[in-house]
Design a protein around this nucleic acid. Structure first.
Lengths: 237, 237
DNA sequence: CGCGGTCTCAACCTCGGGTTGAGACTTCAC
DNA sequence: GTGAAGTCTCAACCCGAGGTTGAGACCGCG
């Protein structure tokens, strides 16, 4: 009678499963990742770790991020534990050399900030006009509250990047293409994700989140690779 | 008579210049980066380091990559020295799902590999048909040698990412948008870079390379931020 | 029943990324 | 010209991240 009918794997089985893709994984490493809070497998009555598919998938994601993106574990953790991951958000608003907070732990940031056009312009170090143009071209989409645009932390992220382009003389209207593309891409992802959400599986939500994160990463790399390849051909270099 | 008419800065001046943006920088760190081969400032007759604008710019780039992307110094170095990867040329077009080369010295480079459709399909673990479809949709653009497509390492990168999408049931034709966008973006960058190359400055080439790298990074973040923002609104999150 | 798998816990290790200090030279400001 | 401030090298040291290595005890399955 094979006992293989249980619906989880032991740590050793997981090891074997991951080894081909991640030769550097080890039992002690997996355990270590648990002590660091990156995974949290259930236990049997006697204390053995139980790895369900979702756990293994998460482990795979962790190892991939570590190997391919060189992310430190604390960042991986943040990024996986709810989108609490602050998209990085380097602190200190304001262009001025403001000593800023020693800050140290850059947790919590982003979503609940609220700024008007002047504030966000100042925070990103660009002219207010840039903000207005970006908004009118739809690159930024502030919520409109009482007829006045209200920008959030994500908009600030965008604006900071735009400010890099501005240095090279790029104008807001040139950046519309980025907005259009983001919309198309989001719609594309939605088509993939929505069916997953409709499943009556209790884990559906969790799986969908993981899937979305993975799609986002893959698409980023795809865009990168295509862009680089194209540039290499079109620019002498 | 102010001696300020020299066209370079001392290490201390550089420190002051960078401090606002990178509070953690220090003199010893800058020197350390030199011993690690990441920068290579000229020296005065008496041995003092001379930092020209391009050196400072490079330094800034290094610090940004370290802080925002968490890249280890050796990876930053490789990435900035562009092409100069070590060893490489694994050539292991391993079959099977994913042993491939985790490669250790990541991504970026593998220019001189040459594969036909079957080989690249095997290396990425997808069906040959996927390769054919991608090629016919222009997502992959192999050189055609004697009527036969010849794919390189960049194509393999792309194909690996595509294989992630395939898992979710995406078909090659859905990915055409990525190709279109990469083309538009490359053309956009070209418009920014070409004027820089035409300058009769001896450093023009170097500056243009730096600029291109910076644009690439900024645009990546911009795309990321826009996509995430859009997803957050369109998918219940 | 025994052999291999798994558990915890503390000690240990390596490496990346710097810091510190000593001792000597250079440059700036007056 | 002289001293204070800045810079140089070089070796030694430091710290944290990310694990590894046993020792000793407990499961579990054939």
């Amino acid at each position: 009678m094979a006992r293989r009918d249980r619906d989880y794997q032991s740590i050793g089985e997981v090891l074997v499963a991951l080894k081909p893709e991640f030769p550097d994984v080890s039992i002690s490493k997996i355990r270590f990742l648990e002590t660091e809070g990156l995974i949290d497998p259930e236990r049997t009555a006697s204390g053995y770790r139980k790895f369900y598919d979702a756990d293994v998938q998460r482990l795979r994601t962790i190892l991939k991020l570590q190997r391919d993106e060189y992310l430190p574990l604390r960042v991986i953790k943040q990024r996986l534990d709810g989108q609490a991951g602050p998209g990085e958000t380097e602190g200190s608003a304001a262009p001025g050399p403001a000593p800023a907070e020693p800050d140290e732990e850059r947790v919590e940031r982003t979503p609940n900030v609220r700024m008007n056009a002047d504030e966000i312009a100042a925070a990103a170090g660009v002219d207010r006009e840039v903000v207005e143009d970006l908004t009118s071209f739809g690159v930024l989409r502030p919520e409109t509250i009482g007829g006045v645009g209200s920008y959030n932390g994500e908009d600030l992220q965008v604006l900071r990047m735009v400010s890099e382009f501005v240095k090279y003389g790029v104008e807001a209207r040139h950046l519309r293409m980025y907005r259009h593309f983001a919309d198309r891409e989001a719609a594309f992802f939605e088509q993939i994700i929505l069916p997953m959400l409709r499943q009556r599986n209790p884990d559906a939500r969790k799986m969908a989140d993981e899937a979305l994160a993975e799609l986002t990463r893959s698409s980023r790399k795809l865009k990168d690779a295509l862009l680089k390849g194209t540039l290499r051909r079109s620019l002498p270099g």
